[in-house]
Design a protein around this nucleic acid. Structure first.
Lengths: 203, 203
DNA sequence: CCATGTTCTTGACGTCGTGTCAAATATTAT
DNA sequence: ATAATATTTGACACGACGTCAAGAACATGG
């Protein structure tokens, strides 16, 4: 039983950072190995394949992101929660220089069954992306439901949650197209107004 | 002056079909060349690079898609126009077996500056994607403006147009995540309701 | 009708990243 | 100490991209 010579968790961070900045195609195993001070072969021994490594790295990120969503949705009025959620999400898209965009959205769009050697791993990756979205929807729906019980909201909480997550995915795409953060924030504010009504907006 | 031995337009169709089904990474120049009955070298002679070929193929598609948008938004009430627009868009995402998704959205998310050898071409591709979205927004905004002049709509036409395009991009992402066309249609209907009000819905 | 020049096509080559494997190495357990 | 087991290493084959010189096909001018 020879022990690993590299920090498993640090490697996942290095790998995800590369994927976030350069995409699945652009992230090179040779770069990751060099940055981590190991040989490529060790990565195959530890993870089995490039995709499996990236999947493990993504799971790590997904947990962090979900925690940030929970925190953003945590307190205050429904409008405050949604504003904080959009704010956090847009800040996440725009982090880094140049902005790295949304890893979940990019990962989803880069998926294609034909290019993946292992079909099971391909499905597992899609599950991981979908699972994060599903959990986010559940959290948002919960925020709407709580607000409804306080009399702050009276429409379909599930429909509202889907609407919001759809818009965040759209924002992730527009971010790549236009590189205009003010426009993203305008759209987010407009979405909130549509769902909650413009009338009860804070002064 | 030796003439080309292949049909330029047919080649673009073949290339775009490959990209649409397999993505930018998955689309192989060797497959395209074989399908078109030419050698890879001829493609480089005609287009200069893989990206330039795909860009030309995309421009062809963008024109077709924009025409379909114009037609969908053409007649009837604003609600009819928007319904037709979402319907056409979702049908486009779901065409093919398996569904091919949205090429514009996928193309945008696959863009990354570090992996492209030629920075000018990279920017040109982003411009092409952004230009299509901008034109679609203008068309939708026009539909809202016309409806406003008929008294069918009284809010901010530009904000409404951005909202709709953002949602369509979000739908393109959710399509990849969940493979659930009914859910996509629900979200689209909900978006229309939010913008136009649920009250004046057709019986 | 033939020669010339220009463009297109062909096939081979170098490069890069991936994935695999056998040999070497470093621990743990007996 | 020795055997057993897991990890690391470096070399290898493969596939796709991009380049290039040489050959092929056509238009033009004589």
């Amino acid at each position: 039983m020879r022990p690993r010579e590299f920090d498993h968790d640090a490697l996942l961070r290095i790998a995800f950072d590369q994927v976030w900045r350069k995409g699945l195609r652009g992230a090179l195993l040779s770069d990751i190995a060099r940055e981590a001070g190991v040989q490529r072969g060790s990565l195959y021994n530890a993870f089995g394949s490039k995709e499996a490594l990236f999947l493990a790295a993504y799971d790590r990120y997904a947990g962090d992101y979900l925690g940030a969503v929970e925190q953003a949705l945590g307190g205050g009025t429904l409008r405050d929660s949604l504003t904080a959620f959009f704010d956090m999400t847009i800040r996440n898209f725009r982090s880094g220089t140049p902005p790295r965009g949304c890893p979940t959205t990019r990962g989803l769009m880069e998926l294609d069954s034909s290019s993946s050697a292992d079909a099971a791993l391909h499905d597992q990756a899609r599950e991981a992306f979908a699972a994060l979205l599903t959990r986010i929807i559940a959290l948002i729906e919960g925020a709407f439901a709580r607000a409804a019980s306080r009399g702050e909201f009276s429409s379909d909480a599930a429909a509202a949650a889907w609407q919001i997550v759809t818009v965040t995915r759209g924002l992730a795409v527009l971010e790549r197209a236009f590189d205009d953060e003010a426009q993203l924030r305008k759209i987010a504010a407009h979405t909130i107004d549509l769902l909650l009504g413009k009338s009860d907006r804070a002064a």
